[in-house]
């Protein structure tokens, strides 16, 4: 029943860090619905709560108050192992800081989510190489993260997020470290995935990247302003 139920349903979520005088409201009552096959860009200045929202959407963090539903399931009610399953099967996450595993080759990094979903070694290698090829790094498969440039590391991270073909792709500044050519390639990959019915939410501060999305959300001081 596509369209009948939102993929992401964020209901009046707040996230508070610290307490007393040092209390910071990173998110202050955010309500957001993202339907299947949407392509959403979140923009906002530094400190507006973009990354906090993204971490909650990616099930990496939990909201202080409010509810968050993926495919109609309240994430707050899931057990630890169910959450692991959600992260592995439903979500592909691209971090701003790449977060590749050090001293481990690019292809092994890309294979990791597949390994956790129990896919056999040969199939894993094939799909990882395909994903690396997609981001133009097939010839760097054996390199370790510290042998790759920032842009290349980011593309490995994108390949790792894509490799499980998740229904929901969350990307925190995925093109932040890429040149215009690589940016174009990654965005083309995103558009292909979107056309194939996958939901994409990304954070960006580049207007031209935001303009490619179907929908633009602007955050300011932890609230959605448009």
């Amino acid at each position: 029943m596509p369209g009948s139920r939102p993929v992401l349903d964020v209901r009046d979520v707040t996230k508070v860090y610290g307490e007393g005088d040092t209390l910071v409201r990173a998110l202050d009552g955010v309500t957001l619905r993202v339907d299947r096959a949407d392509y959403v860009a979140i923009m906002g200045s530094s400190g507006s709560g973009k990354s906090t929202l993204m971490n909650i959407l990616g099930c990496l963090d939990v909201p202080s108050t409010g509810a968050y539903l993926i495919d109609g399931v309240d994430v707050g009610s899931l057990s630890d192992s169910q959450l692991a399953l959600v992260r592995n099967r439903l979500i592909g996450f691209v971090f701003q800081a790449f977060n590749l595993i050090p001293r481990t080759s690019a292809v092994a990094n890309v294979e990791l989510p597949l390994a956790y979903s129990g896919i056999r070694s040969a199939e894993r290698r094939r799909r990882a190489m395909f994903a690396l090829d997609l981001v133009g790094l097939a010839d760097r498969a054996g390199h370790q993260p510290n042998q790759l440039s920032g842009g290349q590391q980011q593309r490995v991270a994108v390949a790792r997020a894509l490799v499980t073909e998740p229904a929901l792709l969350l990307a925190d500044e995925p093109t932040g470290n890429l040149d215009s050519h690589a940016t174009e390639e990654v965005l083309a990959v995103f558009e292909d995935l979107n056309a194939a019915g996958r939901t994409i939410v990304l954070i960006t501060h580049e207007d031209e990247v935001g303009a490619r999305a179907d929908r633009l959300i602007t955050l300011f001081d932890g609230r959605i302003v448009s």
């Binding site: 192992s81 692991a84 592995n88 099967r89 979500i91 996450f93 977060n99 595993i101 989510p113 956790y116």
Partner: peptide, 15 residues
């Protein structure tokens, strides 16, 4: 940190 990355990629705690 590595454990955090692995968890974010969907590694169950047991694994």
């Amino acid at each position: 940190r590595e454990i955090g990355i692995r968890k974010a990629l969907g590694a169950p705690r047991r694994v």
